[in-house]
Design a protein around this nucleic acid. Structure first.
Lengths: 138, 138
DNA sequence: CCTTGACTTCAAGTTGACTTCAAGTAGCAC
DNA sequence: GTGCTACTTGAAGTCAACTTGAAGTCAAGG
């Protein structure tokens, strides 16, 4: 498979594939002239990378999750820790969602006069709530 | 109040306060020599900004939520929309959290042989799951 | 009055994950 | 053998939200 086919089948742009290769997240099995040749297993690897990204791991963290032989050597403790981290994020986002929903229908003349809104405000001011995801690219 | 006091009372670094002023998110009421002077109401404004950031609004979006007179003119529809967006994020993060928890204890010899893990993998590959928050600054 | 040190400005640097660009090369159809 | 094009490289650019640095100013305390 050449880079265009990997891009097509994975949905990952060729520029990103080259970037991932440079960062040692994926590897090509050889070259046909200058052109990279990929083993189909790279698709599974890309899926693992996408999964890691979705879970909030950085590319560097993900790189460390692969053994030299290419097999994933995922640390179960790291997974559990990330799950806990996500859980905290989820709880905070839930509070934010509920607060926003209330604010959206609150009859107080100004949001500043709404107790629920003021409570949210205090929570945000004290940094209790992490920043959620940016919207997906594009 | 000078910038140092605002920084101290709000927890927002002075450099950030200057940056926010440059971006028109806050305003100083005057100068004492070169030094900015702030009205205490800037603290409430900073809390609103922190709230907006926590809810996932960009600084530019937040800037648009203040009327010229400085009062918040928050669009209730925007709040409801952001709440819905958060709700989607929360559901996806929950799926991710549950998947991670399972993977952390899954007895399959390799994660690749675990059906739950493979299901997560497919979900991530299809881009169903947004990127969660990065850790807080610093 | 003079020093000190907290403030000022403006420009440039940082981070992470990419994308874009210019210039060059080579596989494949003809 | 000749082109067309899709590939190649390395460097540079992008984005958001700040932070850092250098050089300058000035209010306040002694």
């Amino acid at each position: 498979m050449d880079i265009a086919e990997v891009a097509r089948r994975s949905g990952v742009p060729a520029s990103t594939l080259r970037y991932y290769e440079e960062k040692k997240l994926i590897a090509s099995v050889g070259r046909s002239g200058l052109r990279r040749t990929f083993d189909p297993r790279v698709l599974e690897r890309l899926a693992l990378i996408a999964l890691g990204r979705s879970a909030g791991f950085s590319l560097d963290e993900i790189a460390r999750m692969f053994a030299a032989d290419g097999r994933p050597k995922i640390d179960r403790r790291a997974l559990a820790a990330k799950a806990e981290e996500l859980d905290g994020t989820i709880r905070k986002l839930s509070a934010m969602r509920d607060g926003l929903r209330h604010a959206a229908v609150c009859p107080a003349p100004s949001h500043l006069e709404c107790p629920t809104f003021r409570r949210l405000l205090r929570a945000a001011a004290s940094g209790a709530i992490p920043r959620p995801a940016g919207a997906r690219r594009k």
